[in-house]
Structure formats: structure tokens, C-alpha cells
Amino acid sequence: MSVKRPFVLVVLDSLDSMRPPGFDIMMLVIAALGAVMATIQPASQSYILARLVLEPTLFTVALYLGLRGASGLASLVRQQIIEVYMSYPISRLGVIISIILSRVVIPAVMLLALPILISGILLYPVVLKDPVAYLLVFSGYLTQALLYGIVFLLIAIISRSSGTASVLSITFYFAYNIIWLLIQSLSSSLGSWAQHMAIAMKFYRVTYFMALQHAGLQTTGLTLTEYLFVPSIIVIATVSLVLYFTRRFEPT
């Protein structure tokens, strides 16, 4: 499969999915949020700074991916633009990978990297102390955002309705976080598996511990479940999305 054609489709679809107003305003808000968080709560360690900046940003990114990315895909199907993409000499696999990149991966990277960049510039002496830990925490939040985004896309392509996709996406986000909150709050009575799950369900907590280990502060290791839980869901959701699009999806 030629890589150039799907890549061009990524650019074309990105222009549509990240069209103003919306994405540009979101970028401004998130950049300002990063600057404010870095200024009002100056951190002494790079991993703490990354967490301070990205914690509120993740919620905004998840909302964006649900309301704009996923519902945008449903609109793409409803308005039959997906058929235009499918009429290009690109395989179905190429089309869906392009859409995943343009509707989830690129917006998530841009929205999460911007505040990290802003806070990194504002507090560069802190970041330069341990840039690896800084990037580790960033990768954790990015992975968590990808989890939400891919599941939202799966919901959108099956539901084919912008409204339903938005509502179900936001419902999934809150359901996931409520389950996490329950496990987290009951972890002392539920046992060690709950403690592990409370970390595993939020991948940025895994990478935060990794950052602590990198800084020589954390001695206890992480379990395989903690490393693999979120990435496994991403892989399963991505494979399901790709299989659904390549084998079952009919743009009627």
C-alpha cells in the first residue's frame, strides 16, 4: 500500500476536522491554561510540572475528541463525504487509518503538546532538570487521550449520528472515570487488585510512577496489568474499528 496517498488524505481531512472556529480557539484556551497553571503553581520538578499542566488539559481534550472528532466522523458518514474518500484509489484500511490520524492522533498530540511546550518555555530550568520524566508524563496523558479518542471513533462509526456519538462518547468518558473513582475510593477495602487497577486505568499515573523511578524516588515496581491495561484497550478498540470499517461498514 502506497503511504503517500493516505498521508495526503490525512492532511485533507485534518483541514476539515481542525477547521476554525473551534480547534484554533481550543488551542488558545489550552495554551493560556498551560501558562496559567505553570505560573500560579510553579513546580520544582519536571514531572510535577507536566502533571499540573496536563491534568486539566486532558478533560478538555477528551471533550474535544468526543464533540468534534467523533461526531465529526459521524457527520462525514451522514454527509457522504466518506464516500468521496472511499472513491479515491486508497484501500479501506488506508482510509480508516487516515481518519484515526486526522480525527484523534493529530488533534490529541497538538492539544496536549501545546501546554507542555508553553510551560516548558516558561519554566525551562525545571524541565531541563529531567526532560525524560517530563516527556514520560506527557506520553501518559497522550496515551490516555488516545484511549478516549479511539473508543469515541468506534462509537461514532457504529452510531452514524453526530448527536448520538457525542452523547455516547461523553457518557463513556464519565462512566470510565466514575468506575475509576469507585475503584480508587474503595481500593483499601477491595484489596491490592483495586489499587493496581486504579493506577492501570489512568495510564498517566503509570508513566508518572515511571518518571518517579527515573528520578530515583520510586522503588516499588509496576505490574504488567498496570503497563498493559490502557494500551490493550487502545489496541482492541483500534483493531475493532479497523475490522468494522474494512469488513462491515457500508456507506449507505
Binding site: D13, D16, Q79, Q80, V84
Partner: peptide, 30 residues
């Protein structure tokens, strides 16, 4: 589909993108 052009019943292209850019990207794909 390399040498095939399609005009769909509902003429929909990515809405916010200037037509020239859509055509340029379509040309690049083809």
C-alpha cells in the same frame, strides 16, 4: 479507481476547505 472520477448525488466535499485546496489534494492522491 485511479483513472475514475466520481460525481455523487449529493455533491459534498470537505465543507470548510477552499475548493482549490480540495482539488489539489485530490490531484496529489491521484
Amino acid at each position: 479507481r485511479e483513472k475514475v472520477g466520481v460525481v455523487f448525488e449529493r455533491p459534498n466535499l470537505p465543507s470548510a476547505v477552499p475548493v482549490h485546496r480540495i482539488l489539489s489534494y485530490a490531484a496529489s492522491i491521484k
